[in-house]
């Protein structure tokens, strides 16, 4: 459903992505793991249109989307939940969710907001509260809920576990699995390799803008090189 072919992105003279290719199939959770600065965020930003690639293709549902503006790409069905949650702190929880549905013109937006409140009851309780007053975990739920409001086919999550308390990490991991049950494909960029590979079916390891390893999530998690580099465990 998402096919990235030899994508190259430059920031000035720095090459952020170097002929990177990967795919996400319908209904799949794919993990993108690797160190800070490896190019995971750049990849997501390029797919969602915030960054223009120097070369390569992004094909989504059979259509080339690279170079389109972000609002056009969102309309194709790709939602990007950015790193650091980026909720609008001086808008209410409800207004944040409404913004997530900005591209929609149908009349089911209110019903969808109610549905988000059933997934995340805490958001319903705090719907009139400013988003800036929520805890980190709650803000992450809001960011994911806001992403869902566009009714995406593919959701890209950038570091959703970063800075969360352990109990919240489990909670958000469970939410990612739930997205899959809703029929949404997920591309999960995450430094918490343990959890990311436990949630995903497949994974890619990214280093300095290139894919250095790819495969089934469980195989990657067992790979000695990956374990040593990213799981903080010596090779078994």
């Amino acid at each position: 459903m998402l096919e990235i072919k030899t994508l190259t992105v430059n920031y000035g003279r720095v090459r952020a992505l170097d002929r990177l290719s990967l795919t996400v199939e319908q209904g799949e959770i794919v993990a993108l793991v690797g160190a800070n600065g490896a190019g995971k965020s750049t990849l997501l930003k390029t797919v969602s249109g915030l960054v223009r690639p120097a070369a390569g293709e992004v094909v989504f549902a059979g259509r080339r989307v690279e170079g389109l503006p972000p609002h056009e790409i969102l309309k194709q069905g790709i939602a990007h939940v950015p790193e650091g949650r980026r909720v609008f702190p001086d808008l209410t929880v409800r207004e944040n969710l409404l913004l997530g549905a900005f591209s929609r013109r149908d009349k089911e937006v209110t019903a969808d907001i109610e549905r988000i409140y059933t997934y995340f009851p805490v958001l319903g309780e705090r719907q009139a509260q400013l988003a800036g007053t929520l805890s980190g975990g709650e803000q992450q739920m809001l960011a994911i809920g806001r992403g869902l409001m566009s009714r995406p086919k593919l959701m890209m999550l950038d570091e959703p576990l970063l800075g969360l308390a352990p109990v919240m990490v489990d909670r958000v991991a469970e939410i990612v699995r739930q997205l899959q049950r809703l029929g949404i494909s997920v591309l999960l960029a995450e430094q918490n390799t343990n959890v990311a590979l436990a949630v995903a079916q497949r994974g890619y390891v990214v280093e300095t803008g290139r894919v250095t390893a790819a495969g089934n999530a469980s195989d990657l998690a067992a790979d000695p090189a990956v374990r040593e580099a990213y799981l903080g465990a010596p090779p078994a």
């Binding site: 915030l50 309309k75 609008f88 001086d90 900005f102 566009s150």
Partner: peptide, 10 residues
């Protein structure tokens, strides 16, 4: 507030 995130909202 945040034009990049606003763009991601469509």
């Amino acid at each position: 507030r945040d034009r990049q995130t606003a763009a991601l909202m469509g």
